[in-house]
């Protein structure tokens, strides 16, 4: 039988993604932060803030898109920064680069893994939200949710590659990503509804990609809106951040361990 390398680049990307996905699913920490924690937050939010109807919308329907953004960021940015930093510092990336596999295949395979994990966590949140709390999502907006999740996931993967260049040892990866993301979660309408956040702080949040992923998903879940659930301005800002991340990654990304660690 022909190997993935012999069958072509697409097969090689799928081969890489299959093993990267296996590695993520076997990692207890990645499983908890990506698949379990967002669902846990949904139950906690309902417990604290309730699930009554405000302006014709069940509150749980406003929790799910924010937590979906959190899940996407966890599956893409947080998992990726931690795993890439560990693999780089342990010499695993370097050893992979000693094989014929092209660099872009490794990057595409890891990104595809994050996209799959992101779609999985969003699906889990929607399914549990719908069954347990009566969360609604317009069928017409399903493609919009999927599109926004894929764009968001790719953006945060690229930003993950960019950030990994600034982290010089594996122990620093986890605190670093949390220090960056926790404040952004608070000001971007994920933990606290935008209506409770002062407008100047909302403007600060809008500089960063987290708010745009969350806002895009909030609008897609909003039953009062029509259309296919894509907010092009949010997608545009995500794309700009992806371009910045790509430039940094292309400039700085290294496959070999940091010499100072």
């Amino acid at each position: 039988m022909k190997t993935p390398a012999a069958r072509g680049p697409l097969f090689l990307v799928l081969h890489q993604a299959r093993y990267d996905l296996l590695a993520v699913l076997r990692n207890r920490q990645a499983r908890f932060f990506t698949l379990i924690l967002p669902v846990l937050f949904l139950f906690i939010f309902v417990g604290i803030f309730g699930n009554h109807v405000v302006a014709g919308v069940k509150l749980s329907t406003t929790y799910v898109p924010g937590l979906s953004a959190l899940g996407v960021i966890s599956a893409s940015f947080i998992n990726l920064v931690i795993s890439i930093t560990v693999q780089r510092e342990e010499g695993i990336l370097k050893r992979r680069r000693a094989t014929p596999v092209p660099a872009w295949v490794l990057i595409a395979g890891r990104t595809l893994t994050a996209v799959v994990m992101s779609l999985a966590v969003v699906t889990v949140l929607l399914s549990i939200g719908r069954i347990v709390f009566g969360v609604t999502l317009r069928t017409a907006a399903l493609p919009g949710v999927a599109f926004t999740v894929v764009v968001g996931s790719i953006t945060f993967c690229v930003l993950g590659y960019a950030l990994s260049t600034a982290i010089h040892n594996e122990d620093a990866a986890q605190p670093m990503v949390q220090a960056i993301m926790l404040p952004l979660y608070f000001i971007s309408g994920i933990f606290i509804a935008n209506s409770n956040i002062p407008s100047w702080l909302q403007h600060v949040a809008l500089v960063f990609p987290v708010a745009h992923l969350a806002d895009g998903l909030h609008d897609a879940y909003n039953p009062m809106l029509t259309g296919i659930g894509i907010v092009w301005t949010d997608i545009g800002v995500l794309a700009i951040w992806a371009a910045i991340g790509l430039a940094i990654a292309l400039w700085r990304f290294s496959w070999v361990p940091n010499p100072t660690s």
Binding site: T3, L12, Y19, A23, E90, G91, A98, P257
Partner: peptide, 28 residues
């Protein structure tokens, strides 16, 4: 082929899985 001075095993994979991953990178 290269055995580098410092490179860890892929922690989540068995010996066989690791070799399956790498064998996919090669033509023969």
């Amino acid at each position: 082929g290269a055995v580098l001075q410092e490179s860890s095993a892929e922690p989540g994979f068995t010996v066989r899985e690791c070799l399956q991953l790498y064998s996919g990178y090669y033509l023969e």
